[in-house]
Design a protein around this nucleic acid. Structure first.
Length: 917
RNA sequence: GGGCGCUUAGCUCAGUUGGUCCAGAGCGCCUGCCUUACAAGCAGGAGGUCGGCGGUUCGAAUCCGUCAGCGCCCA
């Protein structure tokens, strides 16, 4: 390709589609079980399946970029790298979208047959399901797209059924009454995740319950023990005080609880109170879960409408009275005055009634979390209902042990503790949902014998009585019940398939910490249960994407950054690089949605820089074949040896950073290398050598091509498009190492080459860089512009630059000539001292002000003297000498020598300027 | 109420087992350059008592304690 055809700036939109098509058509993302069977080493990631109807957001962008980096890296390292994509049917989320559409025509799902509604949802899924997959492709994800799975696929549905039935047969699935989150609008149970708590200002009401007759002595003793909230009513009856944020639920109270060790209330335990309005008598019980410090230390117990109270009731043997209907109105268990009244209206009525009876002790403002349905924003009601559960304790044991012994390692490490704590206190999992969209619970009830059975295949007749009057349970399973099988259901489980053998267990799971419990922990449990081992060895939990003010990006706040908009504006590589460079291990990442330009400049600028290094190579290397590096080894110039040595460091560092999920570190290492070492120093150094008659031209061309090619390979996992495009246009030596003719996606990862490490070259080129920096600094200081050529003198010779070829220094420092002199010339000029003591002098008659030079010299002397003072104090400290490692002491001695040398030079300089004392 | 995390340059963040990346990077800012790869660039520069206090140590941004502010999770 000719140079003129390469645009000055990288144009992602012109490149991305073409490159992506080439990757896909070349089948480079595919991985086969046969390749593993043939001896290939697998590396497997299964994608956290996005909701099938969802639109790509920045959290997806970050997480999938991370996974793609890992997969591309391992693929280039020669692994059979498999990244399995797919989507989740997302029960309630998807159902609600379709229900909203129905609502526009004034209907609810109940106006349709269940089957027709399901068909409607499928239609919606088929229309939108590809969208998120296409969006993943747009940011460069290299999944094996032929393996795209959906949690409602027949195969995965079979896995769901199999798992359910196995657990049922093992007695780990049971049906029971339990408090669950209930949406009175959606009319379904909700998982905890689906009931999002939002802080709200509410009230905490204090209610008085009269003590039942005959307990006056207990009340007296309680008062004597310090119970100030035990008092008397206007009619002389004793009463207690309880607090609540939901007064209407008091109609369902069946007890009052206190802490067993609370001395104030100990006398009252075993007594009873009259429940106002309801006309029932309820007991006072002791329970360890009551907090003596909260409120009055006495809590009303409403088992049917509060999960904690339900547990207390279970322990204390209290009755359970449900006072609400499924739509959130008071039911027949409530006194007649309240029946059929909505819960919030009932709240006012109850308060009014209590106030009228003098039983409302007071109200305090109270901020608390009010859980709302994440789909319709209705306030969720804890509700007692019959649901299906999985007994989790037996599943948790192996999963817990796995994390303890390191079979599953979390990164950042702190999540291990969070995981373990949750596992230790694990609760049973409510898996039934009163929805129509999802895996229907594979349980059938017999109308004849009233038996129930869980079946892998739809049954024809009752297993127990042979009757044919069967009815399937109407509920569907929680979405996560299919998700937790994902790492093996995608490979054909329960069949012992070749894929399953080749690709289970996987290696890394990357996801957001929010779903550590809902998904990650459950996958680990399912993995041990079904497969006997954990589904992955390492879990990476990335941070949250936030806006400039630190708020989580969300649709409702409108503070999101659309990854696809960024791709359209700046390219997928710019998006990826910016995210990676900004993402510390597990750290949150902030993006300013109001200034995309500034936010994504780091990525875009770097990608463009990389593009232009490639463009330079194309333009300057010429058409002759590039000799392999091995052929020019004996002919390398100092800068060649230097950059090859620096490349070694870069390779090692990138491997190390990626292995630890330090994306930011890898990005930084590569930016430092490509921009700092390669572009700014190496390219500038070899420009003259690339001319037809250039010095050691062959070596320069070979090294340039090698380093640029290696840079592309190292950067490919991070910025796949620009590197792939460069790879096709770059002049390269045809070597087996890079994989001749192959696209970059299938090229080999650079391997460290110990022979290229060259400490001497690094030291020498380092001195050279220091010298140039000093010259540039002095020129700037004295306003000798870029155009003005100067002469520089190295006092005491240029011994440190023996291997520097002629002309390089002159060109990079823009000097007309370099003189070696025994002593500083007598004329006016500017001075500097290198760290090895070499003195630099630039004659600048008429430009340099002697007074200014004197000031500079004095400043330097003071700076070095301060430094020296510190070093000398250290070296005079016998404890430092005896306790610090020898290498550290040695380093201090070297610093001391260097400082002393520089100090001598500066003092002499000062004297010669007439400023000495 | 219990647990966890964060606080380093104007902004966003690095800083691995304490000592050569030890005070850094990117963006922004200032100065000078359209030097035939790149102005999305190059060169030079300003800017931080590493949240406060106390401790451990020969030595602390780094380890310990404590206080303050911010955030998250569980209940």
């Amino acid at each position: 390709m000719s140079a003129s055809s390469l645009p000055k700036t990288f144009e992602p939109s012109a490149v991305e589609d073409r490159v992506r098509r080439m990757w896909e058509e070349g089948g480079h993302f595919g991985a086969s079980a046969a390749a593993v069977k043939g001896g290939g080493e697998p590396y497997v990631i299964v994608i956290p399946p996005p909701n099938v109807t969802s639109v790509l957001h920045m959290g997806h962008g970050l997480n999938n970029t991370i996974q793609d980096v890992l997969i591309r890296w391992q693929r280039m390292r020669g692994k059979v790298a498999l990244w399995v994509p797919g989507t989740d049917h997302a029960g309630i989320a998807t159902q609600n979208i379709v229900e909203r559409q129905l609502a526009r025509t004034g209907r609810t799902r109940h106006d349709l047959e269940r089957r027709d509604f399901e068909r409607l949802v499928w239609k919606h899924v088929e229309a939108t399901g590809d969208r998120i997959i296409g969006q993943l492709k747009a940011i460069g994800c290299s999944c094996d797209w032929d393996r795209t799975r959906f949690t409602l696929d027949p195969g995965l549905s079979r896995a769901v059924r199999e798992m359910f039935v196995r657990l049922y047969e093992d007695g780990l699935v049971y049906r029971g009454e339990y408090i669950i989150n209930w949406c009175p609008r959606c009319l379904t149970a909700l998982s905890n995740e689906e009931a999002e708590g939002a802080e709200a200002e509410g009230s905490l009401w204090r209610l008085r319950y009269p003590l039942a007759a005959g307990h006056d002595r207990a009340a007296h003793r309680s008062r004597a023990a310090g119970a100030q909230t035990v008092g008397t009513l206007a009619d002389g009856r004793w009463c207690i005080t309880v607090s609540t944020t939901r007064p209407e639920t008091m109609l369902g109270d069946t007890g009052v609880a206190v802490h067993p060790d609370d001395p104030r209330y100990a006398p009252l335990v075993g007594t009873e109170v009259e429940l106002p309005l309801a006309g029932r008598t309820i007991p006072i019980v002791a329970d360890g879960h009551v907090s003596p410090d909260f409120g009055t230390g006495m809590v009303k117990v409403t088992p049917a409408h509060d999960p904690n109270d339900f547990e207390i009731a279970g322990r204390a043997g209290l009755d359970v009275v449900n006072v609400l209907t499924e739509t959130g109105a008071m039911n027949a268990n409530a006194p007649e005055a309240f029946r059929g009244v909505d819960r919030f209206v009932a709240r006012r009525l109850v308060l009014d009634a209590l106030r009228a009876e003098g039983l409302l002790a007071g109200t305090d403002p109270h901020v608390h979390a009010v859980p709302r349905c994440y789909r319709c924003d209705t306030v969720v009601e804890p509700r007692l209902s019959e649901q299906w559960f999985v007994r989790m304790q037996p599943l948790a044991e192996a999963a817990l042990e796995g994390a303890r012994e390191g079979a599953v390692a979390f990164s950042p490490d702190r999540w291990t503790k969070v995981y373990a704590r949750w596992m230790e206190g694990i609760r049973d999992w409510c898996i039934s949902r009163q929805l129509w969209w999802g895996h229907r619970i594979p349980v059938w009830y017999c109308r004849d014998c009233k038996g129930a059975m869980a079946c892998r295949e739809n049954p024809e007749a009752c297993e127990l009585c042979g009757g044919g009057a069967l009815e399937q349970d109407p509920d569907v399973l929680d979405t996560w019940f299919s998700s937790w099988l994902w790492p093996f259901s995608v490979f054909g489980w329960p069949d012992d398939s070749p894929d399953l053998r080749a690709f289970y267990p996987g290696h890394v799971l990357s996801t957001a910490p929010e779903i550590l419990f809902f998904w990650v922990a459950r996958m680990i449990m399912a993995g041990y249960r079904a497969m006997g081992e954990a589904p992955f060895a390492r879990v990476y939990l990335h941070g949250t994407v936030r806006d400039a003010r630190g708020r989580k990006m969300s649709k409702s706040l409108g503070n999101g950054v659309d990854p696809l908009e960024v791709v359209a504006l700046y390219g997928a590589d710019a998006l990826r690089f910016t995210l990676l460079a900004g993402a510390g291990v597990g750290a949150d990442i902030r993006l300013d949605h109001e200034d995309l330009e500034a936010t994504f400049a780091p990525g875009r600028n770097f990608v463009n820089k990389l593009w232009n290094t490639g463009r330079f190579a194309v333009m300057s290397v010429g058409d002759d074949p590039i000799p392999p590096l091995a052929d020019v080894r004996s002919d390398l110039a100092l800068e060649d040896r230097w950059i090859l040595s620096r490349l070694q460091r870069a390779i090692r560092r990138v491997d190390c950073e990626l292995d630890a999920f330090r994306m930011q570190g890898a990005a930084e290492a590569l930016r430092d290398f490509v921009r700092g070492d390669f572009a700014d120093w190496y390219l500038e150094s070899v420009k003259d050598r690339l001319r037809p008659d250039g010095y050691r031209r062959a070596a320069a061309r070979s090294v340039l091509a090698h380093v640029l090619g290696s840079s592309c390979r190292l950067l490919h996992p991070l910025v796949p498009f620009v590197t792939e495009e460069l790879w096709t246009v770059l002049p390269r030596a045809e070597t087996a190492e890079a994989g001749e003719g192959r696209p970059l996606v299938a090229a080999r990862w650079p391997t460290p080459d110990p022979d290229s490490v060259d400490a001497e070259a690094e030291a020498e080129f380092g001195r050279f860089k220091e010298l140039i920096g000093l010259v540039r600094g002095l020129r700037k200081e004295y306003g000798v512009g870029e155009g003005g050529r100067v002469v520089i003198h190295l006092v005491g010779g240029a011994s440190g630059f023996a291997n520097l070829r002629g002309g390089l220094l002159e060109r990079l420092a823009r000097i007309s000539s370099l003189e070696s002199t025994a002593a500083p010339p007598g004329e006016a000029g500017a001075s500097a001292v290198l760290s090895d003591g070499t003195e630099l002098f630039i004659p600048l008659t008429g430009v340099v002000d002697v007074a200014r030079e004197v000031d500079r010299a004095r400043g330097e002397i003071e700076r070095i003297e301060n430094l020296l003072e510190g070093i000398e104090a250290k070296l005079a400290n016998s404890k430092f000498l005896t306790r610090a490692p020898a290498a550290v002491v040695e380093r201090e001695r070297e610093k001391l020598a260097s400082c002393k040398l520089q100090l001598t030079k500066w003092k002499r300089k000062l004297t010669s300027l007439g400023g000495g004392e």
